[in-house]
Design a protein around this nucleic acid. Sequence first.
DNA 1: ACTCGAATCTAGCACCGCTAGACATCCGAG
DNA 2: CTCGGATGTCTAGCGGTGCTAGATTCGAGT
Lengths: 190, 190
Amino acid sequence: MVTIQNRRERERAERHQLIIDAARELAEAEGWEAVTTRRLAEKVEYSQPVLYSHFKGKDAIVRAVAIQGCGELARLMRKARPEQGESRLKAAAEAYLEFAAKRPALYDAMFVQQVDIPFGTDEVPQELRDAFGELVAAVGPVAGERDLETLTEVFWSSLHGIATLTHGHRLRPDHHEARLDLMLSALQGP
Amino acid sequence: MVTIQNRRERERAERHQLIIDAARELAEAEGWEAVTTRRLAEKVEYSQPVLYSHFKGKDAIVRAVAIQGCGELARLMRKARPEQGESRLKAAAEAYLEFAAKRPALYDAMFVQQVDIPFGTDEVPQELRDAFGELVAAVGPVAGERDLETLTEVFWSSLHGIATLTHGHRLRPDHHEARLDLMLSALQGP
DNA sequence: ACTCGAATCTAGCACCGCTAGACATCCGAG
DNA sequence: CTCGGATGTCTAGCGGTGCTAGATTCGAGT
């Protein structure tokens, strides 16, 4: 009898996703400090131990949210097309920064909290690879003779710095556009 | 009688600094998650409530550590002088990134954790002003016709992005120098 | 219908930031 | 020299956290 086993597995997968979505919603609504295992359990209408039958711990839940967030960022950047007279680089930068500004909790889980998503030689989640790939594609046209991957890392660093310092109110809120233009024209090269 | 009052105030100020130093040492040795009020109280050999007679809460202690960290960063950057054939911009960038790499916990308190140090119109701590001033001074020679303060914010953002992404193992550890050179030559302008 | 295993929950551990109220200690007036 | 009072410090505890052992409930197969 496979059907019963199948139904169980399907229900389990649905609940798995339910937990991830609940954590994400809670974080986006009230910040990560409001995401406790008790509140999360209440939100999904199960008791706390159920969370631990799906994830090794709270960190694993945050990590799952972060990885799905990477997928969304990749999707948003792929969809972003330059408007009239706009470089692809600028369109990508704007999409990235808009994502960081509109989903600060999600962005935090992805790149600020050190959730130890495998980044190095290990198996990197596909969602992350996709997001970085979009950045590479945007940088490509302006790389010239410069090393593409290295230049993309610089571009990403600049975006990440602007995103996090802006979120921490460390930069003048007006001047946002001027900063972006200055950064882009610098990277555009000679 | 002022002498007794004076002695008390002096002892109090010493203990104030003792707490800050202990918090900083604990954070640098084991990370901020290891800095609990209990461990901190044990380290300074007082009970927990004593901490609360000096600081409003744990956040205030972290904030104090962060502000002193800003002073140290400013001092390090002021001391950094370009070597033979090196631009002042590069010397400043290297000093900044070396600080971030060698004192990751301190850097975290200063710029990553949102400790709500007044940044905007409020009274900004002098240490912070000094640190930003050093960045401005380093950017000055290469600004050209570009707005100095805005360009400095871009420079800072790039440095901050590189520092945090490197610390989170998001960038290839080798290639560090190549990234820095690429970033600097981009900012150097045409 | 009953048994037995899997799924789920209750209750609790050790820790967290923080604080009220008991206690000690020391200063200055009588 | 004593003693009242202020000042400083500590003990003990509150409500919260992440996490888990053991009890309990539930449902599928014989």
